[in-house]
Amino acid sequence: MTPKLSTEKLILREIKINDLFGIYEIMSDDETMKLFGGPVLTNDLEIKDFIQIVKSEREDGISYFWSIILREEKEFVGFIRLKSYNSKYYDSAFSSIGTHRFDNEFVKYFDRTNGWEIDYALTKSQRNKGIMREAVGAVLEFCTSENISPLYARVNSMTNSATVKILRYHGFEDHLPQVDPILLKTYGAKKIIEKNEMGMIFKWII
């Protein structure tokens, strides 16, 4: 079971069926998914098994998934996840670089035994209100108490200043630059550098 976390304004709890409407709202939005990464959903049937997958992965010990709820309004506003690199999630995180993700020169940057990746997303209407900064803080307190470390966070583009600001506020440090393969194919390396579209993998340790 996913442990319940609380802050002054938020409750972070395990996923419930009514949360799927909000999750679909997030994952079907082009702008959001450009920042978050991953395919844009076009049909709500694509998430019909989402809850079962989340619960199964928690039982297997490879992920945590919290729905973010406003304490007073009892409203779903987003989610936050931890994904173990000692699982399929390492492969999926770096699948775009093919077999190079297993090269010694690349693997040395990551703790595949103890490392976890953190990611998160909010509905558009709830951004820039300090919600995610508070939610990330609660999860980091949980990680500290459970000795979950190190954490990695992948940001597709440094132009995603809100996410970068949250990570740096909580002590994540620049770890390894990255380039989104879709952007690389579309614009080429020179234009990506000119447009400041380089990404970054951040790292946090207890």
Rank of each mutant, 00 (worst) to 15 (best):
I182M: 13
I62S: 15
T144W: 03
E197D: 11
E134D: 10
N156F: 05
I47H: 10
D91K: 13
T113F: 03
R13D: 04
D60C: 08
G98D: 05
I97M: 06
K74C: 10
T99D: 06
T7Y: 01
A138M: 01
E25Q: 04
D30Y: 02
E141T: 08
K190P: 03
R13H: 03
L183I: 03
R81H: 06
Q178L: 08
S92Y: 05
E73A: 12
R112E: 12
Y120T: 02
F110I: 07
T99L: 11
E117K: 03
Y169V: 09
E8A: 10
K55C: 06
E31W: 01
G37T: 13
R112C: 07
R133T: 05
V179W: 04
S95G: 08
I69P: 01
F76N: 06
G37D: 15
S28D: 09
Y85G: 12
S6F: 03
I131M: 01
I166Y: 00
Y120G: 09
N160G: 06
D19H: 01
D119E: 11
E31T: 14
A189R: 06
E25K: 15
V139S: 00
L122E: 00
V164P: 04
S96A: 10
I205G: 09
Y169C: 10
W66S: 10
V40I: 11
G78D: 00
Y109V: 14
N86D: 10
I69C: 05
E173H: 12
I201Q: 14
G130P: 08
I97H: 01
V54M: 03
I205T: 13
G78C: 00
E75M: 14
E72Q: 11
D19R: 00
I193W: 07
D60Q: 12
F50N: 13
G22L: 06
F110D: 06
G37F: 05
Y89K: 12
E25L: 10
I205V: 05
I69W: 02
V179F: 05
S145C: 11
I206W: 07
K124M: 14
I15S: 08
K165I: 03
P181R: 08
M132C: 03
S87N: 09
K129E: 11
E57F: 08
V155S: 12
K74D: 14
R133S: 15
I148C: 15
I97C: 02
